[in-house]
Design a protein around this nucleic acid. Structure first.
Lengths: 205, 205
DNA sequence: TTGAAAAAAGACACGGGTGTCGTTATAATG
DNA sequence: CATTATAACGACACCCGTGTCTTTTTTCAA
């Protein structure tokens, strides 16, 4: 009846495995990474790993889920500070609390890979769609509210602006994946895109 | 000494194989496609296929090369009609002669896949970089000339605008790959991006 | 300290994709 | 029509990743 190992320990182990898996995925990408690589990185046997995850896809989905959860928490966090303008809020959602325009989530390339290589798989496709529309709603929300409050111009459709943000973010992540750091100009491109947004929303600042 | 089959026939055969391969790649994507799939699609044996191509990567590079060549020819074509404004030229380069805003190269998803999954491979990385900078120069060129001629505003750096075009195109291709046709809104997003460009370049039209 | 139950280990068989190689069919040439 | 180069065939052996299954070890509770 009673479990032979504490729940805390199990969760701890699981977290360790996920951490190791992340390292592997960042290094090798989703497709080229194997369960064996993860076992080696985590210093665990085949059986040990399969105790927690039933496949590579299973591991990856756990990482994605975790990432989404922390992202949602961060969004909550930002929302609490209600003194912000909609524009500041939008910028925070785009580039995070620290506004690091030249940083990129190291998992971003693998994430793209995961969804693009699995685009013919119904399960993964559905999952990708969910994430897309969740991301869309995040941006759409604040833009719409900004327009309603009069802070933003309503010249353009809020949804299309929100969609353009996603495309921009995805495109940047893609180029980041393929090109060398110095070739991509993350910061300058982000600034350029911010200018587009300023013009479209007629933000003074 | 003398070849036992005409050169034309050989080239014809090769073209057929490439055509079949394209069909397969469009259907299954790069990673999930196998040489066997291509053999079946082309009604050719293993030996027959390997007569022309030494690996899947080899096949794909041939397709990419072909695509790039026709793209360059198209660009030449457009350049000949010198009566165009720089803006019209830019639009043609972005969306082709027909300005079909809701069309997407069916190979685009596989192309992204090819480069993103191979991002740790030196050869493929180098190849991707070449293509990026070639694409960049195409857009950069016309924007710079437009600015120099006074047709475009020089408020923003021509290179960054050109880069933003690539990111946009890549991001759109990515979303096209992952989402269903009806979820993506190709046309509306293209129009939105054109508006960004119009504002940045201060184009009346 | 001992026993039970679960976690971790690692050997194993399987499947699937790859590229090669000896053989056969075919097309050009004399 | 015969010859010969080579295109096309398809069997084969190889490799590698996967997930399972049996065995061993560890942990907790009595």
């Amino acid at each position: 009846m009673s479990p032979k190992v504490s729940k805390e320990h199990k969760e701890q182990r699981r977290a360790e495995l996920l951490e190791a898996a992340k390292t592997v995925f960042i290094e090798r990408g989703y497709e080229r990474a194997t369960m064996k690589h993860i076992m080696e990185e985590a210093n665990v046997s085949r059986g040990g790993l399969y105790q927690y995850f039933s496949s590579k896809e299973d591991v990856y989905e756990a990482i994605l889920k975790e990432g989404l959860e922390t992202a949602m928490e961060d969004t909550e966090e930002v929302l609490k500070k209600e003194e912000l303008t909609h524009w500041a809020l939008l910028m925070k959602r785009l580039f995070g609390e620290e506004q690091e325009l030249d940083e990129m989530d190291p998992m971003a390339p693998s994430n793209l890979e995961f969804f693009i290589t699995g685009r013919n798989d119904e399960r993964r496709r559905k999952y990708g769609k969910e994430r897309y529309f969740y991301g869309l709603s995040i941006y759409h929300d604040v833009i719409k509210k900004g327009q309603e409050s009069g802070e933003f111009s309503s010249k353009f459709d809020s949804e299309m602006i929100a969609r353009s943000i996603i495309s921009f973010v995805d495109g940047l992540a893609l180029d980041y994946a393929i090109l060398d750091r110095e070739d991509i100009k993350l910061k300058e491109q982000s600034i350029m895109f911010i200018e587009y947004l300023k013009m479209a929303l007629e933000v003074k600042e």
